[in-house]
């Protein structure tokens, strides 16, 4: 049986789905992620902090829009653990 894990923001700030406006998104729905993969960035006071996956699996939902503000505990994405 598969299990879905929520990845939440550990910092408050602005969420980014890609490294720079010209680059590909780190992940999108259907992508497979491994433990340690960067799945997004959170900008806190002009410092960019990577959001790192703690699980391996498949992204089933990206819950926030790029450049949305997020608070600690907000769900960023849902991953179906493989």
């Amino acid at each position: 049986m598969s299990q879905t894990v929520e990845m939440t923001a550990e910092l408050p700030g602005t969420f980014y789905t890609r490294e720079s406006p010209g680059s590909e998104p780190y992940v999108s729905v259907g992508a497979t992620v491994s433990v340690g993969d960067t799945v997004g960035l959170i900008e806190v006071m002009k410092m960019f902090n990577p959001v790192v996956s703690t699980v391996a699996g498949t992204v089933v939902e990206v819950c926030v829009e790029a450049e949305d503000s997020v608070d600690v505990g907000d769900v960023l994405l849902r991953v179906e653990v493989s």
Partner: peptide, 11 residues
Amino acid sequence: EGYTIPPFYDS
């Protein structure tokens, strides 16, 4: 007192 410093701007 009680002000929450937002994370979006400079420090």
